[in-house]
Simulated assay, not measured.
Amino acid sequence: MKLQHYLGGLEGLPEPLNLEKKVFVEDWEKRIFGIHVAMMGLSNHLGAALPQYPVEQVPTTFRDEWTWASLRTGAEGMNPFDYFKFRYYEKWLGGISQFFIDNGYVSEEEISALIEAPESAVVEGGDPAIDDQVIDYLRRGDSPRRDVAHPKFAVGERVAIANTPAGAHTRLPGYLRAKVGTVQRIFEGDYGYFVHTGDGIGDPMPIYIVEFTPEELWGPRAEPGANALYAELFEAYLQPIEEVK
């Protein structure tokens, strides 16, 4: 995605953003956050992700994979005009609703009917085993680490950042594409991303912290005295310098 995500450093952007300080602006945002958490805690990938939950035994009709990548893909796939029009949790609502529609859990007509229904008509409660699984997930999480690190690059090595084709989702900041930086740290393990994004990540691989100078990123317009920028990047986004000459 080279449009609405990772806009840092682009020239001609409007005045500094007025960031909302409240975590939840409206009460419904708490509910959509809770729905997302429940979907994460019931996702079928948890059967393979550490610590290997018995998610197949949970009596839920939700039998799909839902990760942070799923949520981000829904947001990044929005029409750019809609993306900038809606607030943070409005994007969540749109992405989650579309996921349920696309996977046959609910229809647009059913959603419309629920919007018109009184709040008392909404069904509450459920099987306690579902709650137990979600709470267990909240306590223990899921780790994408699969092995010790097998890095191709070393600390102190200069690396070039790939300019991969835009896909449905990426973890590569747009303003780092085709830039050159220095490896400052290699994380201890090989880490997967649970889903394959189409731009190189998905299977377990090393993750690096790469340092970039302001001059490298912004050129002669870099502000004097600015600090270096550090980015955590999957190995698929790094290339040897000689490959880009």
Rank of each mutant, 00 (worst) to 15 (best):
K21I: 07
T61P: 01
A69F: 11
A166C: 09
D27T: 10
N227M: 02
A149L: 01
G8E: 15
K91R: 11
P144R: 03
L3K: 09
E116N: 11
L172W: 00
Y83H: 09
V55T: 15
S97F: 01
G94C: 02
H5L: 13
E20A: 05
E119S: 11
G41S: 13
Y175V: 09
N18L: 02
L238A: 06
E65T: 12
S43C: 12
V244Y: 07
G141L: 06
A162S: 09
V123F: 00
G47V: 14
E76T: 08
A49R: 11
V244C: 10
Y175W: 14
Q239R: 15
E90Q: 15
P204L: 09
V37E: 14
V122H: 08
K91D: 03
E232D: 10
V55I: 15
G198A: 03
L217N: 11
E108H: 10
I241P: 00
P151L: 06
T67D: 15
G198I: 03
P59A: 11
E11S: 10
A226H: 02
M1Q: 13
P54M: 08
Q133F: 04
G34V: 06
S107F: 03
Y193S: 10
F212L: 05
K91N: 11
A49E: 12
G202V: 10
A226N: 09
P240A: 08
G77Y: 01
R63I: 00
L176P: 06
M39H: 07
A178E: 12
Y191I: 05
A166M: 00
T73S: 01
Q133L: 05
V23C: 07
P118S: 02
R171S: 12
P80W: 04
E188Y: 12
E15G: 01
E215I: 02
P59G: 06
K91W: 07
V159C: 01
A38R: 10
V106L: 12
P220H: 01
T197D: 09
G74I: 06
V180M: 00
V148M: 05
N79M: 00
W28L: 12
S112N: 10
T67N: 14
R87K: 11
L7H: 05
L217H: 13
Y83I: 00
Y230N: 05
L138V: 14
F81T: 04
A38K: 03
G202M: 10
P118A: 05
V183G: 08
E15T: 09
P16F: 08
G200H: 11
P118I: 00
P16T: 07
F234W: 14
V122D: 09
V159I: 14
W66H: 13
Q52H: 03
G9E: 08
P165N: 13
Y53Q: 02
E124K: 12
L50K: 15
